[in-house]
Design a protein around this nucleic acid. Sequence first.
DNA 1: ATAGTTCTTTGACTTTAGTCAAAGGAGTCG
DNA 2: CGACTCCTTTGACTAAAGTCAAAGAACTAT
Lengths: 305, 305
Amino acid sequence: MEPVTNPVSPADVAAFRHFNRYFTRRIGALDDHYLGQDRPLGEARLLFEIGDGVSLRELRGRLALDAGYLSRMAKSLEAQGLVRLTVPPHDTRLRLIELTPAGRVEVKEQNHRSDALVAGLLTTLTAPQRTELTHALATTHRLLRLAGITVTLVDGAAEDARACLDAYAADLDARFPEGFDKTDLVRPEEVTGDAGAFFVAYEEGRPVACGALRTLEPGVGEIRHVWVHPAARRLGLARRILAELELAAVEHEFTVVRLDTHAALTEARAMYRACGYAEIPAYVDHVYADHWFEKRLGPPPPTAS
Amino acid sequence: MEPVTNPVSPADVAAFRHFNRYFTRRIGALDDHYLGQDRPLGEARLLFEIGDGVSLRELRGRLALDAGYLSRMAKSLEAQGLVRLTVPPHDTRLRLIELTPAGRVEVKEQNHRSDALVAGLLTTLTAPQRTELTHALATTHRLLRLAGITVTLVDGAAEDARACLDAYAADLDARFPEGFDKTDLVRPEEVTGDAGAFFVAYEEGRPVACGALRTLEPGVGEIRHVWVHPAARRLGLARRILAELELAAVEHEFTVVRLDTHAALTEARAMYRACGYAEIPAYVDHVYADHWFEKRLGPPPPTAS
DNA sequence: ATAGTTCTTTGACTTTAGTCAAAGGAGTCG
DNA sequence: CGACTCCTTTGACTAAAGTCAAAGAACTAT
């Protein structure tokens, strides 16, 4: 069963494309032109991505470059005295690339040029207009990130699932005064197949959030371990996960879902309330629970067809 | 004397560059990749810019291409049956390039692909989130346009100045029930040098707004003909022009500026009020005036240094 | 009519960007 | 140890992107 996605309005698409065209022409082109300066764009980009030293392997993945192509560019930059290539002791197949002092200067200068360019672009705006622009950019950024994140059902034993749960456990261990014991996490079989569900959200290939659904008793599901990576917070991702879990709950023919949460997680409580969850008495005596919530899953809303 | 520009805060610059990097990587790259499809990017872009037929000369200017390069790309597209090259009768040195039906199909398909791509990007957002995004994009677009517009002092007799005044006159002629007579426009010598000032705003090389300052009586200036091209309205450009005129007035040692406006121009009245202009009795008996305003130009605000 | 300018075309290049495959040294796992 | 997998390097290309200059036809101004 496909989730019902509301169609994207042509007006939104048009607005986006309009902006896209304008922005790429005005800013993107200008940016590329300046970034290059006296060096091929490929090399300039490479120089920028190096930062404090990475392996060629890492760069290849990040910039999606051909191995041969990258190898040659690295050699060219080395010949120019901008980078140093070294062999890491733990794996001599790899090459580490790092900036030389000269390379660092080059990057810094480039950064200054870019800063000056942007500053020049913004000078004609008044301070309040700049603030408005900064806010609008932040909103756009946030929503584009959110739009690029995909939430997928994975096996509870999958590597990404366990990685998320580990991060979740570490997170709680730091936030709960009493710490957090990993034995309290769901077992893979509880959230797999007919028993439940496990969702992982991916941003650019990396897992950044998760959520679990398990069977509490017949017809009643329990939502657990809704977690979002610190770098992906405040995007509205928890709600996405929650919505996905509720859809899964309907598919599992649960009519009610429950969940508990800890006193330390005040934002979480607010979110559950906003998402239609009502506070209920304790449905289970749980070590880390101070608040209990429940949501009745109504029948799917009548469709037009 | 340089106008005092408030310095751009590093935070705003950083936010802009951060957004820029993200956007170019996420959207720009994707866009280019899809636009090309089975055709070199240069040709694909060219095909898009043609629209309903332009001269090669025009395209060369717009895309900043080498004449030889463009000529060859055009020939390549013609060989593929996507464009037709014709010689305009009025100047046989030029070549007009226009889409053939096949070319039109190609462009349309490309547009559909891009639309689908964007729609795909937005599907995971909820309808309110999409609306929020669309608003943020519109704000960004508006402010970037405004930031890219430069206001410069020009001679009252300059071609661009007269072009703006002609457009202004035509505009008023259409909006005033009684029409508008061009003999009412300022004469070039009234707004040049010690007598006054004339500003033209340029967006990407094209004049899009103007404003005039002339001497009404010793120490008193009059602001006239503040006009913004329809395509550049609602950007906040009139205020920029007004601010520029007030600076010029201070430089001309006017302590007061006055202006009049017509009953039909309600937005203008609101703007003048918002900019600190107070309504006054008629200071001159003018055919098209129904409202009169005045602003006292204080001494420059005390600076910290 | 003439001189100067404008616009396109063509030839002759160079530089970037990118692909593919073979080869060889290094890890890894059973 | 041996098979397999990884990672980089190198050679051998191709295609796209872009530059420069010369030449010729057509317009414009004087």
